[in-house]
């Protein structure tokens, strides 16, 4: 069970010699740090397959973090970074699949269901109008009379 927990001791943790800064991955700007955070949370670890590379302790995840770090420092944009990892490890590493032919159903599910549902309800409401225009207009007296009728009917 829980492959993710078999911690891969040792290795990994590529070390950087930034003695003065505490961060494991130090950045010049908060924006870059946030990008790093987001990117590492959007990439799936090929080894511990149910973790993103930010959380995984597998050596490969730390290699991938290091690569993301290196590319951010080198000024690459998010797309370039993700693409370069996809080129090595496959579409699999994207936790958010691209919109493409084979993922159309996936992306369209919720909007489609809502659209169909709302249309069905609209049709129902419009249809219901012709049925019982009078029913809602019943006075309490009429209603009581109707219920009495009903009871008599049931008793029979």
């Amino acid at each position: 069970m829980i492959r993710a927990v078999i911690l891969f001791v040792l290795i990994g943790c590529v070390q950087y010699a930034f003695a003065t800064v505490n961060d494991v991955y130090p950045f010049d700007s908060d924006a870059d740090r946030e990008r790093f955070q987001t990117l590492t949370e959007e990439l799936r670890c090929p080894k511990c397959q149910n973790q993103d590379i930010a959380d995984s302790e597998a050596p490969i995840a730390s290699d991938m973090r290091a690569e993301v770090y290196r590319m951010i420092r080198a000024g690459a944009d998010n797309e370039t970074i993700v693409d370069s990892l996809v080129a090595r490890f496959g579409e699999f590493v994207r936790f958010k699949p691209r919109v493409e032919k084979r993922t159309l159903v996936l992306w369209a599910t919720a909007p489609l269901v809502i659209l169909i549902g709302v249309l069905m309800i609209a049709v129902m409401v419009i249809r219901s109008r012709r049925y019982s225009e009078h029913a809602t207009a019943l006075t309490p007296e009429q209603r009581e009379r109707a219920e009495r009728l009903l009871r008599e009917h049931d008793a029979r």
Binding site: K47, P59, I60, R88
Partner: peptide, 12 residues
């Protein structure tokens, strides 16, 4: 350093 391995997509 595992550089070529990384390019090859080796994960373990």
């Amino acid at each position: 350093e595992g550089k070529f391995g990384f390019d090859l997509g080796v994960y373990g």
